[in-house]
């Protein structure tokens, strides 16, 4: 079976590539027409060790009507000051069959006419960098 992304999903991936030109962005088409997207080596700031992580997330076939949630970071991420990662915002889980930290930032007010996968990615990163 040929697996292909839907045009709305392709558009979302293109916007992510454009917003992260220095990063490798991998998008694996899913059987439902969505995609599993991984943005490599994204900076998380000095509060974390390691300071960078991949960010993984699924853009579902129902995008942009469905929100993009959750996001995943590398499993060995920890706070430099030794404090625990906030729970339930950042909890152990899996991404593409591997251990990962799941970042739970649900957008209850998601608006399919205004919100985008890349916009959500920026919001999640801002929360991880400054508020988590």
């Amino acid at each position: 079976m040929i697996v292909q992304m839907l045009s709305e999903v392709e558009e979302a991936v293109a916007e992510i590539r454009a917003a992260f030109p220095q990063h490798e962005v991998r998008a694996t088409p899913a059987a439902d027409g969505g995609a599993e997207v991984t943005v490599e080596a994204v900076g998380l700031g000095e509060r974390y060790e390691p300071r960078t992580s991949f960010v993984g997330f699924r853009v579902h076939s129902s995008y942009p009507f469905s929100q993009v949630y959750p996001h995943f970071l590398r499993a060995d991420l920890r706070k430099v000051d030794g404090s625990p990662l906030p729970s339930p915002g950042m909890t152990p889980n899996q991404w593409r069959g591997q251990a990962a930290i799941m970042v739970s930032r649900s957008s209850n007010g998601w608006n399919p006419n205004a919100d985008t996968a890349v916009g959500k990615l920026h919001k999640v990163l801002e929360w991880v960098r400054f508020d988590a």
Partner: peptide
């Protein structure tokens, strides 16, 4: 009447 979060969950 359509929740984007629930739509995501059903996926």
């Amino acid at each position: 009447a359509i929740s984007p979060a629930q739509l995501n969950r059903e996926d």
